[in-house]
Simulated scan of single mutants.
Amino acid sequence: MSTDPAPRPVAPRMLVKAPAGRALLFEYREGEGLPPHTHAGQAVVVAVLRGRLRLSVDGQEQEVPAGEVLHVETAGLFSSRALEDGTRVLVTLLNLA
C-alpha cells in the first residue's frame, strides 16, 4: 500500500449503535480510504458489498472484492483504500469486553 494517506471518504452512515458495538456503511470513491488506526478490544467484520477494497491489517495487505467478508480480531493497525469508484463496505465493530 502506498505510504501516502488515502483521502478520507464522506463520513460513514451509522446503521446501528448499541452497547455491544456498531455497524457502519462506507461509500468510497477510488483512492479514498482510512488511515492506520486500531480497534483494540473489538472484533471487526468487513463485508465488501460492491467494488474492491485493499485492506491492511497488521501490515498484511489483501485485496477484498465484492461478496467477500473478513473477520479480524487484533490490537494492531488497520487501514484501507478503495480500488474502484462506488466501493461500498459494511463494517461491524463488536466490543469484546
Rank of each mutant, 00 (worst) to 15 (best):
F78E: 05
R8M: 07
G21H: 03
V16I: 12
N95S: 15
A66N: 08
E68K: 06
H71V: 13
V69M: 06
A23K: 02
E84W: 06
R52Y: 03
A23C: 07
S56L: 15
L15Y: 06
L53F: 07
A66V: 03
V91R: 08
G31E: 10
R52H: 06
R50Y: 05
R81G: 03
P65R: 13
L53W: 06
L55R: 00
E73A: 12
A20S: 14
R8F: 10
L15S: 02
G33V: 07
E32P: 02
L90S: 08
L96Y: 02
G59A: 09
L55M: 12
A97M: 01
H71K: 09
A40C: 02
L70I: 01
A97H: 01
A18E: 15
L90K: 08
L93T: 04
R29T: 08
L94T: 04
R29Q: 15
E32A: 07
A47G: 10
A75I: 02
P7A: 11
M14V: 15
S2K: 13
A97F: 00
E61T: 07
A18R: 15
A11F: 06
P12Y: 05
E68Q: 13
L77E: 03
A97S: 04
L53R: 03
L24T: 06
L96I: 01
L96K: 07
V16L: 13
T92L: 13
E32Q: 14
A66P: 04
F78M: 09
V64K: 04
S79T: 09
D4L: 09
E73V: 14
P9L: 06
S56G: 15
G41I: 06
Y28A: 05
A66I: 09
V64F: 11
E84H: 11
D85W: 04
L93D: 00
